[in-house]
């Protein structure tokens, strides 16, 4: 058998040296799966059986199901680059049968700037010093046995 470290040389097919592999995000739905949903006929269970449970439903309106998916890849020196982003909207009428199926692509989305303000939470903001040295007492020294059992650990063991 060959000694050369072949196992370490995965011939990545097609992906160039600089290319970052694409990554599937969210709940992708193929064309022919969508084709099988017929508005007016398929019910909620048909859709769930066919596509699986939705990524999200309307916040306060359970009659809309969203299947959100995308493809991202890593970009040098920046955060994730989104190549593809699509949303499948399935709208049900009150009776629970599919009323309408819509697809939204990346072009429908708007470039939104996140508001930088944050609601303060009452968490105990640890002082810098406490964070720096707060860990010394608590973190077990690697290789020490499991933590002392029972309360007797701290008090003096012997007494006449």
């Amino acid at each position: 058998c060959s000694y050369l470290p072949t196992a370490a040389v995965p011939g990545v097919p097609g992906a160039g040296l600089f290319e970052s592999p694409r990554q599937f995000r969210g709940h992708a739905v193929t064309e022919e799966q969508v084709g099988q949903i017929t508005p007016g006929v398929s019910s909620r269970d048909d859709v769930e059986a066919l596509l699986g449970s939705p990524s999200a439903s309307g916040t306060f309106d359970p009659s809309e199901w969203y299947y959100i998916s995308g493809i991202t890849h890593q970009r040098p020196a920046r955060n994730l680059g989104v190549i593809e982003q699509n949303v499948l909207v399935v709208r049900f009428d009150p009776g629970g049968t599919v009323q309408e199926v819509r697809r939204l692509g990346m072009e429908d989305g708007r470039e939104i700037q996140m508001v930088s303000r944050v609601t303060p939470s009452p968490g105990t903001e640890r002082s810098v010093l406490q964070q720096l040295f707060g860990n010394i007492g608590r973190v077990g020294v690697p290789g020490s046995q499991q933590p002392q059992r029972g309360p007797g650990a701290a008090s003096p063991g012997s007494g006449q």
Binding site: V89, R110, I112, M114
Partner: peptide, 14 residues
């Protein structure tokens, strides 16, 4: 913000 970024304008409005 997210619904607008996804293009679901009525959901965002709701």
């Amino acid at each position: 913000e997210i619904y607008l970024a996804l293009g679901l304008t009525e959901e965002a409005r709701r």
